[in-house]
């Protein structure tokens, strides 16, 4: 049984925002809603690092734990999805999520997207797969088409990986080994001391 996971390799992420616009492109999310964003730490300083963040599809998802109407469900592969017809847009999940993944449209609601919106791992929602209604409410359902999230598939440097956690880990482990274990970038020692 696969467990779908995202992993962003900070050594490869260049903050190009390719993942962000790929998500916009595939899911047609409106201006102001960012299912995925790139966060840069120590911007402009030695040790600057960027990572791309979206819903992490937690195994024990805090959003689901706090949802007062239980609109979340998890697929066999560990993708956390939700039913917008049940969602009341309360924002409780936003408190609970450690990654700031849940998004709420501003007024002038994007139709049903007045409800909470978040990354679906390109798995759509509880409507007929790849139907017009699913596309409109939840965006693309690539999983049903045998494809993986477009953000990762289009990542400029293959920093963002998405798929079965074991396969993702294999690729990442290989890279770490090749790099000799720790980041090789200028200022690392200054920023984080030697041998960290």
């Amino acid at each position: 049984m696969a467990r779908m996971k995202f992993l962003c390799d900070a050594e490869r992420c260049i903050e190009c925002n390719g993942c962000v616009t790929a998500c916009k492109n595939e899911n047609e999310v409106p201006w102001g809603i960012n299912r995925r964003r790139v966060v840069t730490l120590d911007d402009g300083l030695p040790g600057e690092k960027s990572i791309s963040v979206a819903c992490m599809h937690c195994t024990d998802a805090p959003c689901a734990a706090v949802c007062p109407v239980d609109c979340f469900y998890t697929t066999e592969d560990g993708v956390v999805l939700h039913d917008k017809d049940l969602c009341i847009g309360c924002g409780y999940c936003f408190y609970a999520c450690p990654f700031g993944a849940p998004q709420y449209p501003q007024k002038e609601a994007f139709g049903v997207r007045g409800k909470m919106d978040k990354c679906t791992f390109c798995g759509g929602g509880p409507e007929p797969d790849n139907s017009a209604i699913e596309k409109k409410m939840y965006g693309a359902n690539r999983l049903a088409q045998g494809k993986l999230p477009l953000c990762a598939e289009m990542c400029a440097t293959k920093a963002l990986l998405a798929g079965d956690g074991d396969m993702v880990a294999d690729i990442y482990r290989e890279r770490v080994l090749k790099r000799g274990g720790r980041p090789n970038s200028w200022g690392w020692e200054t920023a984080y001391r030697k041998n960290v």
Binding site: C16, N17, G18, C19, V20, T21, A22, K24, N25, E26, K147, L150, E153, M154, C155, A156, T157, K158
Partner: peptide
């Protein structure tokens, strides 16, 4: 209506930056 990664291209192997990932617009 859709933009898919071009895995076959030896230049980008499917990858795009923000601009490339948005050309459908």
């Amino acid at each position: 209506t859709g933009q898919e990664p071009d895995f076959t291209s030896p230049f980008n192997m499917g990858g795009h930056c923000a601009k490339g990932a948005s050309v459908r617009e």
